[in-house]
Write a protein that binds this DNA or RNA. Sequence first.
DNA 1: CGAATTTGACCGGCGC
DNA 2: GCGCCGGTCAAATTCG
Length: 306
Amino acid sequence: MEDKEGLDPAGTEFKSDSTTSSTVAGPDSVSDSVNYFFDRESSILNEFSWNILQPDHADEFGRFSEVDRTATRPDLAGNFSGSSKSCGAAGGSCSGTASNPGRSAEMLTPNPSVTSSSSEDPLEKSTDIGGKQPEIPSKVRKKGQKRIRQPRFAFMTKSEVDHLEDGYRWRKYGQKAVKNSPFPRSYYRCTNSQCTVKKRVERSSEDPTIVITTYEGQHCHHSVGFPRGGLIIHEVAFARQFTPTSSQFYHPHGIQLHREISSSTTRPHQVPIEVGESRELPESTSQFPKDEGLLGDIVPPGMRNR
DNA sequence: CGAATTTGACCGGCGC
DNA sequence: GCGCCGGTCAAATTCG
């Protein structure tokens, strides 16, 4: 338990704000893509508190793409590139955390509008959880409130451990068997009471060595630790070979992001990206920086929110 | 003893 | 309208 989260490769948080998909359809040429990618992806990463510094070397790792945007908020949606929001999505609960003193200039400045919008889902839940009402029958959630999902990012990581360290502490709150897969899916929630970020971890049924981690929401606090040598097994090589259609992006550390459109929560305003079971983006080719300085580049300590 | 995990049940969205 | 399935709750259990 503890080992797991205390260190993590990159503090990870991503936010995919919505947006996206269309955006993703970017340039075709590699070089362009790289820039494009960083331009936008870095923003994304920033959103999640990841600071990628160099757009220059991209190539080895892979690629990543935003994953699911189940997000549903239009407001969020456009922020992908410009990015700025802070507690964004999940933010709802991050009350007051919007301003992060600790953040570097690269971080984004909070976007009020965005932030505010987020109060739906997260709050909904956190409030429930935090203040359960005695009279409410167990297992009965608030009705009338529909769940609004946060933008999500999925990473594919080749790792032996299911639970990748990302610098935050997570509490598991559920596990479910995955259809057509022998591996269960675990649900985690950030242990920070004010943070509503959630993540899902599952193994690829196709390749058991691949761990698919999906983050939802954005942290509104600092990570508990900055894992530099994390225990994640990064395999660049893997990333290379595991790049079938090219729509998947590997995060340094072997993490790969995909766009995962949540099928269950599709909403009208969402960009109609076709993502089947494979959570792959139709066409994105952005790439990540090389291995060098991976962790460090991603998130300098103390750069996170709060 | 408090915190985290496990696990079965429940809820709600979505497709048919 | 019904059933399936993903996601979440929360009591029980385990762990540090």
